[in-house]
């Protein structure tokens, strides 16, 4: 088994996704939430790539285009997310997610 099997990549992606999910839910600091989201996105990219290896020809190649766009979107999202974090910090003077409970019940 010299070649890299897609299943291995999938398993790694699943584990990374779970860790990213745990980070988002378990940490109270807003920065960590954003970092967890980045982890999850990376796991998804990895999953795309593993799928692309199972497809022949140009279909497989398209599996590599999706992560490109995902990276671009992740960049935009990080940008806006951080801007919002800044403005939220300005109004709350705290980065604790539990402090933001003004949503409607």
């Amino acid at each position: 088994m010299g070649d890299l099997q897609p299943i291995q990549l999938q398993v790694l992606a699943a584990l990374l996704f779970a860790i990213g999910l745990a980070t988002v839910m378990a940490r109270r600091n807003l920065f960590f939430v954003l970092m967890g989201v980045e982890l999850m996105l990376n796991a998804a990219n990895l999953s795309f790539l593993s799928w692309s290896r199972t497809m022949p020809g140009s279909v497989g190649l398209e599996g590599q285009l999706a992560p490109i766009f995902a990276i671009a979107v992740a960049a935009a999202e990080a940008c806006v997310g951080l801007a919002m974090l800044l403005s939220v910090f300005r109004s709350r003077e705290s980065l604790d997610t539990d402090a933001f409970d003004r949503m409607k019940e």
Partner: peptide, 19 residues
């Protein structure tokens, strides 16, 4: 902000379940 709290431990369960 505490690094870890009770909800943190509770949050491990769904994540583990997902994985």
């Amino acid at each position: 902000t505490p690094r870890w709290d009770a909800f943190g431990w509770a949050a491990l369960a769904p994540s583990a379940a997902t994985g």
